[in-house]
């Protein structure tokens, strides 16, 4: 640790929303790791050792905050392809991610079938994604509904089954305060399925954290071309049962506070909580 007094560190702890100095260092390390993997992949791509690259650069603070505010293997995750840093924070290793980039047979996410940044992990509850935009928001909603269902009817998850029954092959686990994370780029909020997911999450008061990562552009198209008024949070402000947070996703402490609060709302089952975050790449 550095040379400042304990009092200054206490002040920092409060401001950072309860992160200890050790956690702050871990936070920084995970962000930096994410950025260096992106850099390494860009190099490998130039060397033609990998065949595609999708960058998380600029989104790291928001995503590490989300990963540190949630519980891998307990909560459920439907991230999109810019979400390298949350997956690292949840426990994905660099090797896991680079095995997918090279298309290895031992790629734990897809066995060499999906391009890089298509995060998948059974032990961490990171559900396999496509490259389509916004479809994952509806999966997150269904996943949250399943959590509600299993908690209401735990006996349905039990039993042993013989041949000719799919239940023999399903491993079911659930927790009464589990939360579902899904994220989406701001550009993809133009897709109807994003709005369909908000409809059901709002109606059913589901414990889903929606994270909109707004870097101002959908590939090359600026935000005002996609979103009337240029601010998605204003458009969704009238949905009932939502808790909103509009944050600077490049600020680690602000991001962590917002994520911690959002997850806490969901765990308490009082309302579900989309977080609108701004991030720069």
């Amino acid at each position: 640790m550095g040379s400042r007094t304990a009092g200054t560190q206490q002040a920092a702890l409060r401001k950072s929303g309860g992160l200890t100095p050790e956690q702050m260092v871990q936070f920084y390390r995970t962000m930096y790791l994410s950025r260096r993997i992106d850099d390494r992949e860009l190099l490998l791509k130039k060397q033609q050792k990998i065949f595609f690259q999708i960058s998380c650069a600029g989104h790291e603070a928001l995503l590490v905050a989300a990963g540190m505010a949630m519980r891998p293997g307990y909560d459920w995750f439907f991230p999109y392809y810019r979400d390298r840093a949350i997956c690292l924070a949840l426990g994905n290793t660099v090797t896991d991610q680079l095995l997918q980039a090279v298309g290895a047979g031992t790629d734990p996410a897809s066995g060499g079938r999906q391009m890089p940044s298509h995060w998948t992990s059974v032990p961490l509850n990171i559900v396999s994604p496509s490259s389509s935009t916004a479809t994952q928001c509806l999966h997150a909603v269904g996943c949250a509904e399943a959590g509600v269902y299993w908690n209401a009817r735990p006996q349905a998850a039990l039993g042993s089954y013989g041949a000719g029954d799919y239940r023999k092959f399903k491993n079911i686990h659930f927790h009464n305060d589990e939360v579902v994370y899904t994220s989406i780029g701001e550009g993809s909020t133009s897709q109807g399925e994003f709005w369909e997911a908000l409809n059901t999450a709002s109606n059913a008061k589901l414990p889903v954290v929606f994270v909109v990562e707004d870097n101002g552009y959908a590939i090359s198209t600026p935000v005002e071309t996609n979103t009337p008024g240029g601010n998605i949070s204003r458009l969704i402000a009238n949905f009932p049962n939502f808790h909103f947070s509009e944050i600077d996703g490049t600020d680690p402490e602000e991001s962590f506070r917002a994520m911690r609060d959002a997850v806490a709302y969901c765990r308490a089952r009082t309302r579900h909580t989309p977080v609108l975050a701004f991030s720069e790449r």
Partner: peptide, 22 residues
């Protein structure tokens, strides 16, 4: 469901990933 066929299908996928049979 709402009158939205992608909603029906996408939610069913999310449930089935958790072992339900929609």
């Amino acid at each position: 469901s709402p009158l939205a066929e992608a909603n029906i299908t996408g939610r069913a996928i999310g449930m089935a990933v958790r072992g339900m049979k929609p």
